[in-house]
Write a protein that binds this DNA or RNA. Structure first.
Length: 859
RNA sequence: AGGCGCGUAGCUCAGCUGGUUAGAGCGCCUGCUUGACAUGCAGGAGGUCCGCGGUUCGAGUCCGCGCGUGCCUACCA
């Protein structure tokens, strides 16, 4: 006999079942099972120092739907969770939380304890102390995150957790790096690099974002050094001995190394090959021709600086120009001496006088100063013309990126572009069209991947250098650790053959000061979780993995870099499927974001509506589809869950007698459910969880509103008809609970526990053979006809204002095909509609009902 | 500027390979204590399927053009 609560409710189900699942290891991965039944998921490790938002709940639910479906289909689901604690967001949080800053020159202080409250002045601490604080804080954050995921019902195996800064991740990151280095696929190069002047670190192309910024065109005169080359045309000064450029960055005039125009631009033909003089500084610079110069833009003549933007880098490289760098890593203009090599000027004294007013200023302040100087010298035509333009920023940065020449580590990507496109074609995308995002990105790559960051809380490069007699690092003389020494930190570990006191001294060694880009570690999540190079047995069973779920915003970063690393190390795709979730949009159809102040705290949301209700909303947002944040949908989900409790209570409230399923309405119901099951299975196999939910949900409501209403009186008896109804209803309930288990894991588990042993989440996904008790004929029409006649009678009741409590007589006109089903459904239809009797004629094509109140009993 | 989505009821969305009078839920209106559920049930109103062309016996669905909207990429002179 089922044990059913008097008043079933959703409240408290999350607590009850999360602890039970944990105790029973319901979602534990069984590594003893063979590879062909494993289903491995590489789920995004959330940035643990960031805040969780509704988007996380949305997309992690999608992943969990697939995980639960695959588990019920008999797969051994490998579903680990990671924490992305590596990198800048954590550093920032630690700095603010404790009021500290990292100074790598300081020695480790084992006695350091952070202040209870951050002081006004940031305390400088050593790198090991700083990293320890990062680790401490992220551990706290991880607990909060894990609690939320458990509360949401994500069926992760929590014994498989990893952190991207953890020992395991560090070892694999360093090992993979050394392999790339040995293979010649990682290299170090001194090159112009995108640089954030606040974080003082290099950043990669993938981390850029454009922001619209107000700016202004300044029309600036360059003197034509050779007076013979007179030219005409627009943009050229009337006097003929000056040419004009438009620039938004006049402060870079001292860094100008050439002017450039399109080779076919008639206005500037005479200038090509000649020199002009920069204003204020009188530095001779050549006028070059290059097809990238746009005749339509500005005056058609551009100033090439080292370096104002990425186009400058292209011009500089392709035209073989010298470097005249003025922006320092901190963003300030560095001191320069005019007249010396590389800074030749026809008037060094006045150049120096001008520049001395700029040195030490930030770019923005220097700009204002240069404008002032240009106005005074008469080299600026008119006033600056305000424009808005897009400027490249580091996605986490506050000031526009500069381009600074520095020594950085790179991983080769450019030579693998075609191979990566091939991998993108090989990968199954859900939805299919997301592949275009990947191809778009790969086709647009303009350089190898810069992986070094001048930061602290990250995986160090496992490299030392010999120190030259002059005390500087000899970057050509690398000292590498053995693989069995990993993970290591070159700032504290000592290379073989050296002693600690040789650090930094001539003839000694020094560690590479940089850490890896977070994506250099995050791109290895399949390796970290599958035990690459550490657990060959596990690796063979889980890699390549089956599913990478993620948002479309990180296709260019996470997905791309993971495909690259897997291609380089294993010559394979890291996973066979990528399921891409959409955005969560606010009611104005804008992406939910903190800055808009429209972010809802996920935990509050789960507590308000219930986890199953929130999951329902998330599940309705199909793969890749941007979905509105809609509490209304969560209420619908909640109603569904409550309805499931109540309907289950009703079905299980009377389980006897049971017998063969003989009645047409029962058989038709089961036959329809068999179709629903097949459809839902097919949809989920294709990662279309929302379509599967739609089918299942629609059937469930029909089951409640029509089927149960039709058979509840027959079922109340104890004859063969009741036995048929009981058997059918219980089978249907079992199937529906399992079909809904991935979506409503708490509710379905609760009901399952009333009458079944074990977890519904470990039960078998319904299959066709379960419906054999109703096979052999096709009674689906009978069940549909019963519904149609019921609808017609209900409409009459409503029109004539006859409540259900009023017994009626019905005169029915039914379409001819009903002749074959009517006899089999008549009893249920009449009972289910409180109709005492009926007269029926078969004609026409639509169902017509006329009803009148039946005479009172005994009349 | 290119690429990719999207545009269907007041709102949020389904409508697969083209096939009767275009669907669901929410909201709205009108009723109903019917023995699981008023956290419920029944009924109803509500649509030029963005526009214009084309293919077809037939187009919400396929093709072209346009408009609107969102994202990705490019655009820093």
């Amino acid at each position: 006999m089922p044990t059913i609560p008097e008043k079933p409710a959703l409240e408290g189900l999350e607590q009850k079942w999360t602890s039970r699942w944990q105790a029973d290891r319901t979602y534990a991965f069984d590594r003893a099972r063979p590879r062909d039944v494993v289903y491995a998921i590489d789920t995004p490790p959330p940035t643990v120092s960031g805040s969780l938002h509704v988007g996380h709940v949305f997309s992690y639910t999608h992943t969990d739907l697939i995980a639960r479906f695959q588990r019920m289909r008999g797969r051994s689901v490998f579903y680990p969770m990671g924490w992305d604690d590596n990198g800048l967001p954590t550093e920032r949080r630690v700095q603010n939380y404790y009021g500290v800053r990292c100074d790598p020159s300081l020695p480790f202080d084992p006695a350091f304890v952070p202040p209870a409250k951050p002081g006004k002045q940031a305390i400088s601490i050593s790198r090991p102390n700083f990293v320890a604080l990062c680790a401490q804080l992220t551990t706290e954050d991880e607990k909060v995150f894990e609690h939320l995921w458990r509360h949401l019902g994500v069926s992760v195996d929590w014994s498989l957790t990893y952190a991207t800064i953890g020992r395991r991740a560090q070892r694999i990151s360093q090992l993979a790096f050394l392999r790339l280095l040995h293979a010649g696929q990682a290299y170090q190069l001194e090159a112009p690099t995108l640089w954030d002047v606040d974080f003082r670190t290099a950043v990669a192309q993938a981390e850029l974002e454009d922001r619209e910024l107000p700016g202004a065109y300044h029309r600036i005169a360059f003197a034509i050094a050779n007076r013979e080359s007179r030219i005409d045309g627009s943009g050229i000064g009337e006097s003929g001995n000056r040419v004009f450029i438009d620039t938004t960055r006049p402060e870079l005039i001292p860094a100008c190394v050439a002017l450039v125009a399109h080779p076919d631009d008639p206005r500037y033909q005479p200038l090509f090959g000649t020199n002009v003089l920069t204003p204020l500084f009188n530095v001779p610079v050549p006028v070059k021709a290059h097809p990238l110069a746009d005749p339509e833009k500005g005056t058609g003549l551009a100033m090439i600086c080292t370096f104002g933007d990425v186009t400058d880098v292209v011009w500089w490289r392709e035209l073989g120009l010298p470097v005249r760098a003025i922006i320092q890593p901190n963003g300030a203009l560095r001191p320069v001496t005019f007249g010396g090599a590389g800074w030749e000027s026809t008037d060094a004294a006045s150049a120096q006088a001008a520049y001395d007013q700029l040195a030490g200023l930030s770019a923005v302040k220097a700009r204002a100063k240069v404008v002032e100087l240009l106005k005074a010298s008469g080299d600026m035509l008119g006033e600056p013309r305000p424009i808005t333009h897009n400027v490249k920023f580091y996605e986490k940065g506050d000031r526009p990126l500069e381009i600074v020449t520095s020594r950085q580590w790179f991983i080769k990507t450019m030579e693998f572009r075609d191979a990566l496109l091939g991998r993108g074609a090989e990968l199954q995308w859900h939805p299919e069209y997301m592949r275009a995002r990947f191809e778009n990105w790969v086709n647009g790559l303009n350089g190898d991947w810069c992986v070094s960051r001048q930061r602290f809380f990250g995986v160090p490069f496992p490299v030392w250098y010999r120190v030259s007699p002059d005390g500087t690092a000899d970057v050509a003389a690398r000292l590498l650790p053995r693989e069995d020494q990993l993970p290591m930190d070159p700032s504290t570990d000592v290379p073989d053959g050296f002693t600690a006191d040789q650090r930094g001294v001539p003839g000694g060694f020094v560690g590479d000061p940089d850490v890896m880009d977070t994506w250099a570690t995050s791109s290895l999540t399949p390796f970290i979780v599958c035990g690459w190079e550490t657990d060959p047995e596990l690796f063979a069973k889980t890699f390549p993995m089956h599913l990478r779920p993620q948002g479309h915003d990180i296709i260019r970063t996470w997905l791309f870099s993971t495909v690259l690393r897997s291609h380089l190390e294993e010559d394979a795709l890291p996973w066979s499927n990528a399921a891409i979730s959409g955005w969560v949009l606010d009611p104005d159809r804008k992406k939910m974001s903190k800055s808009k102040g429209n972010v809802v705290t996920p935990m509050a949301l789960l507590e308000e509506h219930g986890s199953d209700a929130v999951r329902y909303w998330a599940a309705k947002g199909g793969p890749g589809v941007d979905t509105a944040f809609e509490p209304g949908q969560m209420k619908v989900g909640r109603r569904l869950a409550i309805k499931l409790l109540n309907a289950s209570k009703f079905v299980l409230g009377k389980t006897e007698p049971v017998g063969p399923v003989t009645e047409a309405v029962d058989r038709g119901m089961l036959q329809r459910l068999a179709v629903v099951t097949a459809d839902a299975t097919r949809h989920l196999d294709g990662y279309d969880y929302s379509a599967a939910l739609r089918d299942t949900e629609a059937f469930f409501w029909w089951f409640c509103d029509d089927y149960i209403e039709l058979v509840k009186r027959r079922r109340a008896g104890d004859d063969a008809g009741a036995a048929s109804a009981n058997a059918a209803a219980q089978l249907a309930l079992s199937v529906m609970l399992r079909l809904m288990a991935p979506y409503l894991p708490f509710t379905t588990e609760e009901v399952w526990s009333w009458w079944q042993s074990g977890s519904v989440h470990r039960s078998a996904w319904p299959v066709a053979s379960e419906f054999d008790v109703a096979s052999g004929d096709d009674r689906r029409d009978a069940s549909l006809h019963a519904s149609a006649v019921t609808a017609a009678i209900r409409q009459q009741r409503s029109t004539k204002n006859l409540g259900f409590g009023v017994p009626v007589r019905a005169a029915l006109t039914l379409p001819v095909p009903y002749e074959s089903t009517w006899r089999a459904i008549e009893r249920d239809v009449l009972a289910g509609n409180n109709a005492l009797d009926s007269t029926v004629t078969f004609s026409g094509e639509i169902v017509l009902a006329e009803i009148e109140p039946a005479p009172p009993a005994g009349a």
